[in-house]
Design a binder for these strands. Sequence first.
DNA 1: CATTCGTTGAACTGACTGGTTCAGAAAACC
DNA 2: GGTTTTCTGAACCAGTCAGTTCAACGAATG
Lengths: 210, 210
Amino acid sequence: MGSEVSTGAGRTGRGRVERRQAILDGAFAVFARRGYAQACVQEIAGEAGVAKPTVYSHLADKESLYREAVGAAAERVGDRSVAAVEPLRAPAEAPDSALHAALTAAAHALLLAGGGEEARTVRRLACAQALQFPDLAAAVREHVLLRPHAALADRLARLTLAGRLRPCDPDRAAEHLLALLTGPLEYRPQADARKVAGEAVDVFLRAYGP
Amino acid sequence: MGSEVSTGAGRTGRGRVERRQAILDGAFAVFARRGYAQACVQEIAGEAGVAKPTVYSHLADKESLYREAVGAAAERVGDRSVAAVEPLRAPAEAPDSALHAALTAAAHALLLAGGGEEARTVRRLACAQALQFPDLAAAVREHVLLRPHAALADRLARLTLAGRLRPCDPDRAAEHLLALLTGPLEYRPQADARKVAGEAVDVFLRAYGP
DNA sequence: CATTCGTTGAACTGACTGGTTCAGAAAACC
DNA sequence: GGTTTTCTGAACCAGTCAGTTCAACGAATG
């Protein structure tokens, strides 16, 4: 009781939240390379440079470890994806080549955010335990899939209204653009992101251009 | 040794292979609803209407059960997908509307084969244990993803050569069409397959039509 | 009828691991 | 330096489940 008065921080001077974060980071790393069932709490503790009881003093059990670690990562990925779409606020009077460039840039950023290592891992982990933790899978889906889709659809709607795209359902258009982006990665995981983005935008604009 | 002479069948008069198949079917069902770790061999035996030692008399261990069951299902899905593309051998002199119709039919069939319950389950199971059985994941990928892609690319190449599509890389075109098909299912799992297929082909032909 | 072979049910072993406990070490605080 | 608190390491408990063993059973077979 005395220590919190003196420092004002959580409990032990400095390092309460940092240590919790270290544990969550370790948990994510271990879950990523072992999967849920194979990961043992012992190893997570080691990864975080901490003893097993310490882990349990921060998170209730293995399940919480998983939920917190994966959920936080999903949020990060979602944030990055939404941010990638944000610059797509086209000034109405720009030429068509600028639209093409802006779209390509956004597509490329989106691909880096949604196809990167962390994003891939999050999707795999969520899918792997979808039966056991369906609510977590739903939350990940919300962050990683639906939020970026909604953000992109918003931008496309504005572009359509500005006459930069042929009249269309922006939700449908967003689905198609995202599919054109992420689909090729399934078939060629090693493909150059910039090239994939360029091709996707080309096809998209041929179909949805004015 | 004596019995095979008399009946000519595997071992016990009738039912050796049928029983093995029943066990594999049971295994697939149980793995599908529990996941690998949660599934216990006892339940698989029950699902197949058989005792636990009988299971082990047909397959070596739980891992084999998983590999055989998932592998066989992946092969079925792959076969169905390839068959869906097969009718796309367009007579060269047909009108463009016939191309559109044929493409839509193939797309719809492809969607039913690759987006159906079994296909989804196979993908989930393979992805879930990808770390533990990477070779199985690769095999599933081969059957469920790469084989249909190659078959479709073949058809698109012939169509391109016949002047029915604008000159393009058929591999890339196949990726894009498949992406347009399966992508929307990620965002709207309940969507009408026929509608999704129609929209995908519309977009595809606007971008790749002659 | 006697034999043979696969099936069955049940019990058993062995390994693994999540989660807890506890006494002692280390560090922060005054 | 003395006090308090957290962290550590190790042992421990309990539950689960893969895989095995075995005696009894039943159906074909001769």
